[in-house]
Amino acid sequence: MIKKIFVGTALSMAAMLASTNAAYANECEVTVESNDAMKFNTSNVVIPATCDDFTVTLKHTGQLPKQAMGHNWVMTTKANGQAVATEGMSAGLDNNYLKPNDARVIGATDVIGGGEETTTTFSVKDLDANEEYMFFCSFPGHIGIMQGTVTVEA
């Protein structure tokens, strides 16, 4: 009887530890969805300062092609967001509507269309928990609706 209780307790603890490790393993990544209605499924992304790198996976749950309703996920400081988006318009779709090598861009995915998925990974080490960050879609005209905040948690 004692052996049975011990084995049951050990299995419960192992399951709890596995779920805790799974949650911990995912704290340095997030999946964000976009759609044909020009919406992200979240308005805030939290990045733990303990992460070395952070990964964003963008899924376009709509059906329209990227030329008509493409979306990307771009992170900048809040102060730089609008300028990055405005200057990116002239860069065109081939450059994901971002000026090539724009140092103000912290992380960015490719522009994707309906049913597609893309990922970006960027370093967290230079992010400051006291800075205001944002994310947005740089497809022309989308930043007005498709934007949110990025919080770096110390």
Rank of each mutant, 00 (worst) to 15 (best):
F6T: 11
F6L: 15
V7D: 07
A14K: 12
A14H: 09
N21E: 09
A23G: 08
A25L: 01
N26D: 13
E29N: 08
V30A: 11
T31K: 15
T50G: 13
C51R: 02
T61G: 07
T61L: 10
Q63M: 07
L64F: 11
M69Q: 14
G70Q: 13
H71Q: 11
W73V: 01
W73D: 00
W73E: 03
V74T: 13
T77C: 04
T77I: 01
N80D: 15
N80R: 11
A83C: 04
A85I: 03
M89Q: 15
N95Q: 08
L98H: 11
P100R: 10
A103I: 10
A103Q: 15
A103E: 14
V105Y: 09
V105K: 12
A108W: 02
I112G: 07
I112V: 05
G114V: 00
G115S: 09
E117S: 15
F122K: 06
V124R: 10
V124P: 09
K125E: 05
K125Q: 06
L127P: 00
D128L: 07
N130L: 08
N130V: 00
E131P: 07
E132M: 09
F135C: 00
F135W: 07
C137F: 03
F139C: 12
F139K: 14
G141C: 06
H142C: 14
I145R: 15
I145P: 15
M146F: 01
G148H: 08
T151I: 04
V152W: 01
V152N: 04
